[in-house]
């Protein structure tokens, strides 16, 4: 059932040609609001990548060993969301205990990530494309890194443009979208190298 694509291709494609933000429009709300400062954007990107990998792999297991056998595919949305919420909560507690340095930097982003559509989105893409375990793992890792890359780029540009004089009304989300559009156009130049969608 799993498509016959090399997991490494999936990994590279999800960063470049099928970037979560620039091609799939996922995780936009936090992408826009946290990208004004490079440091925080970097922190959020790290947190998103971490959560993505853990939740996608976990959801793959739940899908394969619980949802499919029990034939409750129509409940998948609820189950995935619950798993994501539970995982994030446990992750926060674990990080606080065992990696306090990391928790000090990422801790406040974790509750925000639970409702980030990128997390649920990656899980749903994985289900629709019937990826197997390795493919899911590399898909999640690549998607996370791609998202991280995109928010870092936007934050870097916004920081540089922070003191530029702009026409009225442009500053803020209007500008961020236009910048993102230009970045998306640039990335289209890569299309054709790897195709997974």
């Amino acid at each position: 059932m799993a498509p016959n694509i090399n997991p490494l291709i999936i990994f590279l494609a999800s960063i470049i040609t099928s970037n979560m933000v620039l091609s799939n429009f996922l995780g936009m709300c936090s992408y826009l609001s946290v990208s004004s400062e490079y440091k925080t954007a970097n922190g959020l990107g790290m947190a998103v990548t971490l959560v993505l990998v853990l939740t996608t792999v976990l959801n793959w297991a739940v899908y394969t060993y619980v949802i499919l056998p029990l034939e409750i595919v129509y409940l998948q949305y609820i189950i995935f969301i619950m798993v994501i919420a539970a995982l994030v909560q446990i992750l926060e507690m674990g990080m606080d205990r065992y990696t306090p340095d990391l928790h000090a930097k990422l801790g406040i982003f974790l509750p925000l990530i639970t409702v980030n559509c990128a997390i649920l989105g990656v899980t749903l893409f994985m289900v629709i494309r019937h990826y197997n375990f390795i493919q899911s793992l590399l898909f999640a890792l690549g998607s996370g890194l791609g998202w991280w890359l995109a928010i870092n780029m936007l934050a870097a540009i916004r920081e540089k443009m922070a003191n530029v004089k702009l026409p009225p009304g442009l500053k803020g989300p209007g500008l961020s979208f236009i910048i993102t559009g230009i970045m998306a156009m640039a990335f289209i130049g890569f299309s054709g190298i790897f195709t997974i969608q």
Partner: peptide
């Protein structure tokens, strides 16, 4: 899931 969260809480949050 609730059970798992409670167990983790008592293990991880138990200082």
């Amino acid at each position: 899931l609730s059970v798992i969260i409670s167990i983790s809480e008592s293990v991880l949050n138990n200082y």
